[in-house]
Write a protein that binds this DNA or RNA. Structure first.
Lengths: 100, 100
DNA sequence: CGGCTCCGTTAGTGGCAACTTACCGTTCGT
DNA sequence: ACGAACGGTAAGTTGCCACTAACGGAGCCG
């Protein structure tokens, strides 16, 4: 998931799909300064983690961003956020008890 | 930001700091299967994007996760989320108009 | 059917970044 | 003031991954 978003070109692809709406692989290859096979590989990675979904329209595959992937990331972030605050509060309490 | 979270060991470091609370570099090096210099470099990266903050306590530097960095990520995600839904709605509308 | 387009896959290469080893500055204890 | 502990930095190596080039397959059109 975060591994997928770690790559800059993958983020560019996502951004292109986001602002430009769903489109085919060839069109993506035109808009992103990278060869078409590279786009395919990145789309494969993005699809594996649920950030993108594709739909066959004749010979061409239309890709679009998938909200479920973003939702997963969001829930992960929320949990991380809450747990961090909790752990920090615990740590402060523990430290103050040691100070006594 | 996302580049920083892209690395697995950096996520392990963050996770360690999150669950175990703030701690020094040496302690981190014990808990994470990586040499101490590597920890330093990763902490430098994490600090550069505001995910971590450090505080000198004598000779040892205490690191802790910084909520501001997580907040930035959260707002970015929220914006991305909203824009995606918006762009998708626009795309659907456009497609239906073309169908007429 | 034959050619064309569009896409995914494989093999191979180059570059970057993560890791270690070694070194040095800083700070505390004695 | 000296030694030790702690941590950041520099240099060097290795492994991984992003990218390209070449091939193969599946679907429209004549």
């Amino acid at each position: 998931m975060l591994d997928a978003l770690g790559d800059p070109t993958r983020r560019v692809i996502l951004e292109t799909l986001r602002t430009g709406g769903p489109c085919s692989v060839g069109v993506l290859a035109e808009r992103v300064p990278v060869s078409r096979p590279a786009i395919s590989q990145h789309l494969k990675v993005l699809g594996a983690v649920g950030l993108v979904r594709h739909e066959s329209r004749g010979t061409r595959n239309i890709y679009r961003v998938h909200q479920a992937g973003l939702g997963e990331l969001r829930s992960w972030l929320d949990q991380f956020w809450g747990d961090t605050l909790q752990a920090y509060a615990d740590h402060v309490r523990r430290t103050e008890e040691e100070r006594k």
